[in-house]
């Protein structure tokens, strides 16, 4: 599991990419999906997820749709037009950052190299 500090900067691209791929998702679904896709290495804490989701909504990247599930309200988050435009730059930035980190820290060496 990666530390909270490492995940802090990439939470926004993760949310944007996920919603771009899946259309609409609710908070619990996002946490579980990221956990499953990363084989438990990326655990998004609720304390980070909801402030980020609300901030992205306020900035106009996401919009919400409230649906009644039993006797409680479930909010689905989906990308707005502005959000869709932000996906590619956000993902590219992470990929570039990943490449820079590889040059900084070096790629893991195999036993034969």
């Amino acid at each position: 599991m990666y530390s909270r500090e490492l995940l802090k900067g990439i939470l926004k691209p993760i949310i944007l990419k996920l919603l771009n791929d899946h259309g609409k998702m609710y908070g619990y679904e996002i946490v579980q999906h990221v956990k499953a896709s990363s084989q438990g290495k990326v655990l998004i804490k609720e304390g980070s997820l909801y402030p980020s989701l609300h901030a992205l909504t306020k900035e106009g990247y996401l919009e919400t749709e409230a649906v009644m599930v039993g006797n409680r309200t479930r909010k689905y988050y989906r990308l707005t037009g502005k959000g869709k435009e932000a996906v590619a730059p956000a993902v590219n930035e992470v990929i570039e950052f990943q490449a820079t980190l590889s040059t900084l820290f070096g790629k893991p060496k195999t036993a034969l190299s």
Partner: peptide
């Protein structure tokens, strides 16, 4: 209220 709704569902 919006955060409470999210957390209640979660």
């Amino acid at each position: 209220v919006a955060l409470i709704d999210d957390l209640v569902d979660h």
